[in-house]
Design a protein around this nucleic acid. Structure first.
Lengths: 341, 341
DNA sequence: CTGAAAGCGCTTACAG
DNA sequence: CTGAAAGCGCTTACAG
């Protein structure tokens, strides 16, 4: 095969000007049916495809969305967090449905990522996904806003945040899960996960947890909380820490399923039965959650819906329609790990 | 902020020509250190980024790789096959490491995908990932080759295939898993999964299965095979079919973990104990495999390695170095689901 | 409805 | 080591 066909080649073949080829192929109503047909068939025989780079350069637009996936550098890098993987799938689908390509890029929190994508014309807009220290994140978000970069982020939805955020109702999720554990007769409910404003999603879950405890007339005991990022290992270690502290507890609410699954292993190794000795609940409803033994009670985040909303709001931003932050419902999924009666 | 800065803006600011700016920023050795510094600092203050579209158009290159993910349209579309998700993660990482962006695109087998990416300058090369009917796939692969499109595919590695294929040693994986089941004392080993050349990966696993049976002096009984695509539901249904046939079996080798997990559920519902009544093994080692109860014996495909090799070979193709098909080792992971003694 | 022409923002021979 | 100029392949006012 010789070099790629251009619009000039097909103009020549169809006996029209190159401008008309361009118009015809972009579906302009200005072109007559007959001309359009001739051009189309010429394009087909030459196997012509519009050059995206040229088209994008001219139109100042890319037709692609970029997904920036942040991973905590301390996470064991063998596997991506399954929750994000699930989001990735749903975002990919949603973009495709809207006719956009999706560019995926892994980023580390520390890096100067905010500059990399803003204005280099790789994408019309950005989707930010990932946990991590929000305080350090925030500056970059503000720069993004200042630069006029279109972006939406997945995360906690709180007042005063820069840009558009989509997230689930972490507070309500935490509250419901904890209330459920209390409803099972538990009185000493531990919380596994970071509980500071640095990690707003976990913090909201923690606030919901504390709220449920107080509503039941129970004390919020700091000795019952242990930090953990979202990995199985961190969950395992946090549970061990709790055990070593010697505080008594009859339930664990983990800020994520991965943490819960790690805790489950730690508890089993100490001979503690779930749910018999300790009732357990997680957060996310990753695919694994229903397969562990016992099946894990958790708060489901609807990743399918999340992807749709993220893409939809980003496209609104791109079109200049104005987008809004939104909070998606979190749904308690009761499984065996928390059923004590 | 006003419109984006161009190379002319920074040329003006640095007091040089636009060509020099371009050279300096691309790291040409022709530019003096001092000039380069001045240009760099001008670029920094104007927050200048090279426009990818323009650069790519001029250089006739994109700096991005496209991943075409094929999903069987009959699969329940709530979740992507976890094995592919894992591959996706590893491919993303590997591309990033090589300085390439990754464009992800879901495709249906039926669609005319082969034309969509070839020559439209969206990507320098293609990675094809997904199961499905190979026969219908094949024509398109041949067209891709004819068009000179650079691509590598994940799949069975067999003689006479168009293009470069990377896959794991499916035959050996199937053989080892089956031999292990036989070693556990099983004599009637069922195979769950399509076993025709239309699905070459499964077919290879089936051939390995049959080989192990014969090597042990056991008969290959067609009544012990049931078709299934890679979903939990299909695995469940295939196991049910087997049960309804009334044939006796004391082990199941499933062509994928998802199939195995579905079978596990079907067996449990009939009151059959795994591994007590039926020993079970799968293929892939998806994250879930170690979390089901009992933990699933399986053949591990090293997705991390797979992504690296795929990207590496594709880049060789792009550079014109010539790439070769390669078969990666498959490793048996023995867990509780197959241990009868 | 169609064509001639400008221009999107770069890269890279060519000339000095 | 640097600059002036051509050109990558389109899209889109402008003129007819």
């Amino acid at each position: 095969m010789k070099g790629k066909a251009t619009s000039f080649d097909i103009a020549h073949l169809a006996g029209v000007s190159q401008s008309t080829v361009s118009r015809a192929l972009r579906g302009s109503p200005l072109v007559s049916e007959e001309t359009r047909r001739r051009i189309q068939s010429a394009a087909d025989t030459l196997n012509y495809k519009v050059d995206k780079n040229a088209s994008n350069l001219r139109r100042q637009h890319t037709g692609t969305l970029a997904l920036l996936l942040f991973e905590d550098p301390t996470a064991d890098d063998s596997h991506i967090n399954p929750f994000f993987l699930s989001m990735l799938g749903s975002i990919t689908r949603a973009s495709a449905q809207q006719g956009y390509d999706l560019l995926i890029s892994f980023q580390q929190f520390s890096r100067d990522w905010h500059a990399d994508f803003a204005g280099c014309q790789k994408a019309d807009g950005l989707i930010l996904l990932g946990y991590g220290d929000y305080q350090s994140h925030r500056d970059k978000l503000e720069k993004l806003v200042a630069q006029g970069t279109r972006f939406v982020r997945w995360g906690a939805v709180l007042p005063g945040q820069p840009g558009v955020s989509i997230g689930c109702d972490n507070f309500e999720g935490g509250r419901t899960a904890t209330a459920h554990l209390i409803g099972q007769g538990c009185r000493r409910v531990a919380f596994l996960g970071d509980a500071t404003p640095h990690y707003p999603e976990f913090h909201e879950r923690y606030r919901g947890y504390a709220d449920a405890l107080r509503a039941a007339g129970l004390e919020v005991d700091e000795a019952l909380q242990a930090d953990a990022e979202t990995t199985e290992r961190a969950g395992y270690e946090a549970a061990e820490l709790l055990l070593e502290r010697g505080v008594s507890f009859d339930a664990v609410f983990a800020a994520s399923d991965l943490i819960a699954i790690g805790a489950l292993r730690a508890l089993a190794e100490r001979g503690l039965a779930v749910p018999g000795d300790v009732a357990l609940a997680g957060f996310d409803d990753i695919p694994m959650a229903s397969f562990v033994n016992p099946a894990l009670t958790t708060v489901r985040q609807d990743t399918g819906k999340a992807g749709e909303v993220l893409v939809e709001q980003l496209l609104r931003l791109i079109r200049g329609d104005g987008a809004e932050s939104a909070m998606l419902p979190a749904e308690l999924k009761v499984r065996r790990s928390s059923l004590r009666r």
